[in-house]
Nucleic acid binder design. Sequence first.
DNA 1: TCCACTTATAGTCCATATGGCTATAAGTGG
DNA 2: CCACTTATAGCCATATGGACTATAAGTGGA
Lengths: 322, 322
Amino acid sequence: MDDQTKKTRAGRAKRKAHDLKADLIAVVVAVNEGEPCVLTIGQANALPSGPFEFDHRSLQSGLREWVEQQTGQPLGYIEQLYTFADRDRIGAEYQQRVISISYLALTREEYAGVSAKRCWESWYDYFPFEDHRSGTPPMLLEVLRPRLMEWAEGAPEVETRRERRRRAEVAFGFDDRAWNEELVLHRYELLYEAGLVEEAVGGRRSGDLVPVQGRSMIADHRRIMATGIARLRSKIKYRPVVFELMPPVFTLLQLQRTVEALAGRLVNKPNFRRLIEQQELVEETGETTAETGGRPAKLYRFRHAVLDETVMAGTKLPLTRS
Amino acid sequence: MDDQTKKTRAGRAKRKAHDLKADLIAVVVAVNEGEPCVLTIGQANALPSGPFEFDHRSLQSGLREWVEQQTGQPLGYIEQLYTFADRDRIGAEYQQRVISISYLALTREEYAGVSAKRCWESWYDYFPFEDHRSGTPPMLLEVLRPRLMEWAEGAPEVETRRERRRRAEVAFGFDDRAWNEELVLHRYELLYEAGLVEEAVGGRRSGDLVPVQGRSMIADHRRIMATGIARLRSKIKYRPVVFELMPPVFTLLQLQRTVEALAGRLVNKPNFRRLIEQQELVEETGETTAETGGRPAKLYRFRHAVLDETVMAGTKLPLTRS
DNA sequence: TCCACTTATAGTCCATATGGCTATAAGTGG
DNA sequence: CCACTTATAGCCATATGGACTATAAGTGGA
């Protein structure tokens, strides 16, 4: 506590270097039998993670090492999510400040050999209200809506109440608003703010405030998972990242089911096929498979050439061609 | 150097906490009289930046403090860009590892009081080949193309040469390929790899290898600026962020000129107006201004309500409405 | 063997968005 | 009063996206 009073420039500068620590956290996604899964450790209540160390070549390689060490899963596609450093994140040592650097990784389950360490969990176990593939989940209107409205009405100011109601409506698509599957993080943060998730209430779970929306995780891991899901749901719309989650060869329906699993909602079959074909994302292998039950489906593979044709950046500006 | 040999687990764990430092770096953007500008310090060769310290409440507030202290400029809109930690980033102390956390900030020049510290520089001074508002810059075909081709042909393997040529074509829109204004970072990295920017060649600028493409910056600040420009050019297409750069009241042509300054290319006037109007991004103030020279233009203001209507997430999936 | 069922695949139809353009309105400065 | 500048409205062809229907080609069981 002595250090704390020394607010001189030199003292601060010296201390800050000694108090910093960086954590690498991974949201590793795979789609197994139509379920979008996240790689977890512990009692399925934590994401793979570990400190960034001196002999890590880079942040990414440090992350790969930790994930592989903790789960045996090698990573392919990796993309940075977000970096944050909230003061109240760590409790143990008062002086320590932790920077959390989170990543999204896409793989396939059957990638590596057998390993008992790996624990894939459907992400809808953590966010049950996010799966709209069989229509709007009943709990959304039956449980979440009333409790969010209760929270909204609990505000002292009229203005705040109106504001809260509107936020809940937008985030969850109440009152004829469209459901926007990308707002995963918004929704989680709203529930957190409303004290409806376990992480928000902490140990003190007092009678009425029992959080019902899905399994929780340690620290802010569920928040990070929400960030990853949101990013992925957004990205599949403008970059061909789904294929990182597909086997080398697949049918168009399998591809569609994967997209649906990620988006948490159904897509229109003919239009989906048209979309894929006109973008020339895939090519036929010439083979077919009869394992799908009905008429044998053509097998396709991803056209890796499209990764080069980076030109596909859907403009939204009325550019002149000059 | 003694520490280096101690590769034991305990030694590593102890050292890593002591060697970490985090830098906050800001790309602060404003559009002044039709020129997209970036806030710089020093001899206009560095971005505002400073170490993340123990008594910063968060990364963002630390960044705000540093920018305000170094330039007097208060920040409004802030968004994280990227975090990286390359080993060879710092030269001084061998043992130290630096994590760089970069941000994009949008403001307006006339925001704060007078301050001699602020130094706004057109970002096209650093990336002259990015401004296509008056057509393709001559230097692109006259200087960059030959030098990039020279670099491509310098590769030993045939395959590498072909690869390099294709990458240059895609990034710079050579050979009838469309110019993609979003590939700012790609282009800078390609030039870096080809040894055509000063940062790549360092001090050893040997005769032939004189880099001609714009002013350089210290460390990787120009690379970070490129990241910020790329992010901004992409984001103006799907989020109403331009208005962070506009005065409270403006004409549609002023808005168009700002977008053009950012995108580095001209947009079609009637279509631009239609786009703005049909998205209901602005509303008339009822006033007009005659300062534009010709017929007085209506003045508009941003409809802040649209920030709430977060529904605008342009889907690219053929969703079923269910 | 045939029939019910499943899935695959090829279209159509229409509303809307987008790109490119032209015409007219309404000011200013000489 | 006229030349010039900028603002604003509207047109047309095409591309795109959403919803839907029809037909093809297998499987499994009665």
